[in-house]
């Protein structure tokens, strides 16, 4: 464990984090250990986000740092076996008619870094596509994103389509700018979340 690397990521020192990664790799550190450091750092960033000490800029920049670190270690990673156990699979997407992706992408990143396999279906996803993805993957969790008030009905239709297809045991969470208890009840979703860490906590509860 490189505490220096963890600290650099947590403190948003991008260039330091990248240089430390290069130094660690040159010094013979295992790429998997570096990934563990990234995870440890993201745990701190996630916690800070929950307690109101970190915000969207930090989540996005941390995502950017991790992407670059992954690129650096990738050539050496393939030599090692990666048999990482996932906590579960989440099918994620912005519902039909809505093309907003920023919040969905942050949720996807936070789920991924917290140990979930994420199947991101993108934006403007029809209910049938969610059903198909659940069928193919065996996922037990679906996360629906929507920014518009016009997303309420497609969310409801997606929940209904999943039930109709026999996936009553699949848990559905919803999130977006105008989502609250009323909309959770209206759509028939199992829960709603205000932000990306809420999504992670729900997924943990359901796994």
């Amino acid at each position: 464990m490189s505490e220096e690397l963890v600290k650099a990521i947590v403190e948003m020192r991008e260039q330091d984090a990248l240089q430390l990664t290069r130094d660690l790799l040159d010094g013979g550190s295992s790429p998997l250990d570096i990934l563990d450091d990234c995870r440890a750092a993201m745990e701190v960033v996630g916690r800070r986000f929950e307690t109101g000490e970190a915000f969207i800029p930090e989540l996005i920049l941390a995502g950017e740092m991790l992407k670059q670190i992954s690129e650096l270690i990738k050539p050496r990673l393939e030599a090692e076996t990666v048999g990482e156990e996932k906590l579960g699979t989440v099918v994620l997407g912005t519902v039909e008619g809505d093309i907003h992706d920023i919040a969905k992408d942050i949720v996807g990143f936070m789920l991924d870094i917290n140990g979930f396999k994420v199947i991101d279906l993108g934006v403007d996803v029809p209910p049938a596509r969610f059903v198909e993805a659940v069928r193919e993957s065996g996922a037990k969790i679906v996360a629906l994103s929507g920014f518009l008030t016009l997303a309420y009905d497609p969310m409801k239709a997606t929940v209904a389509a999943l039930k109709e297809a026999g996936f009553a045991d699949v848990k559905v969470m919803i999130g977006g700018g105008q989502i609250d208890d009323h909309i959770c009840e209206y759509t028939g979703a199992d829960a709603w979340g205000r932000d990306a860490m809420a999504a992670v906590n729900l997924a943990r509860q359901w796994s």
Binding site: T149, Y152, Q178, I179, D180, H182, I183, E185, Y186
Partner: peptide, 8 residues
């Protein structure tokens, strides 16, 4: 809330 106007 828009949610209340729409579904409440």
């Amino acid at each position: 809330p828009a949610s209340l106007m729409t579904t409440g």
